[in-house]
Design a protein around this nucleic acid. Structure first.
Lengths: 187, 187
DNA sequence: TCTGGTTTTTGACAATTGTCAAAAGCTGCA
DNA sequence: TGCAGCTTTTGACAATTGTCAAAAACCAGA
């Protein structure tokens, strides 16, 4: 939990009172490898902070699993569309490693927003960071070749390579396992 | 300007005082077709609301123009990365039609956030909508075929087709003009 | 250590999309 | 009206990536 407070103070420092309010609202969740934080069809009612571990988001497309994001230490994770709109999730969130998470419900978060302007500001700033991150991934996905995308991964997020099976990484990059294997053999 | 107030009340209704504060901070900008709102290398210091007209964001990749988004009536537009980080923009924003916009500087917006929690909330909620929109585009870009992406455009944003040259649309879909032309001839 | 199951690699081939060049179509304006 | 310039389409071919199947490598549990 201290990890969470420490992490968010990088985004926007909080008053002692706001920190205490956060402490009261988050609950610890521990899950082991391969367990699910969420399965498709459920409404995702929680926002999670990943203190330790790794997980992936994936959905089914024509009978195949498509892994579209990973979460690691200090990431906020949720099925964003489901969490925000309150509709059924199309994605699954599965643990890649045994993990420690902290969870808060949408209701408690809304309550924190009402009580502490500074917490809503923190989230507004966090959204900006996550939006920029997604923009970069989008541009890569749409306008770069498979080899460029893999090289970009090597440069920007090499830790993924050490903790995630190649099959999931291929999917994350939007290519088949075979193509990824061939790209790797040529570098 | 009333359009702006009306539009944002769909996101989150504002008090009279907050509305008045907004009125004081936004300035009208009118530009004609083909003019630039921003060129690469500049720092984007404004957030714009597009009341009437159309524009595109594009950047140069290996000597080619890549159009990656469009803006239409009731869209908030800016070079988000540049606006948030204060660094030089890699993209250009060009008018596709003569347009009426309302602009606010980052400083005035920050000041509004400080004075009105409800305005920061409004922006937080707007970010959620824009994030979800981008997520959908990302998934389409990464995991769908060119034909699927075009059909999706026909279903979801057919107005683009009526107001934007096909060459820009091809780029927006991440394909060449020739491929788009062939897809269209087969439907 | 052995073994069964999973993941990754390799090969052959097919489908999709891109590139280049030329033709056709469209638009604005003198 | 007619021309100049720009956009879109068409054709031929090349490059990239996907699919299917089999082999190789890797890993976890008995």
């Amino acid at each position: 939990m201290d990890e969470l407070i420490l992490h968010i103070s990088n985004y926007h420092p909080l008053s002692k009172e706001a920190q205490d309010a956060l402490y009261d609202c988050f609950e610890q969740v521990t899950l082991s490898k391969n367990e699910y934080l969420l399965t498709q069809g459920q409404v995702c009612r929680h926002l999670y902070f990943l203190e330790k571990g790794a997980l992936r988001g994936f959905y089914n497309l024509d009978g195949k699993e498509v892994t579209h994001w990973f979460g690691f230490e200090q990431d906020f994770v949720t099925s964003f569309h489901s969490f925000i709109t309150g509709t059924a999730a199309v994605e699954n969130i599965q643990l890649l490693e045994g993990s420690i998470l902290w969870s808060i419900t949408k209701e408690k978060l809304a309550d924190l927003f009402n009580r502490y302007h500074e917490i809503e500001r923190l989230v507004r700033i966090a959204y900006e960071k996550y939006y920029i991150r997604l923009e970069e991934r989008f541009v890569n996905a749409q306008f770069k070749t498979a080899t460029d995308r893999y090289e970009n991964l090597l440069l920007q997020t090499p830790h993924i390579l050490e903790r995630v099976p190649l099959g999931y990484i291929a999917s994350y990059l939007g290519i088949s396992s075979e193509t990824l294997s061939r790209i790797r053999s040529k570098l």
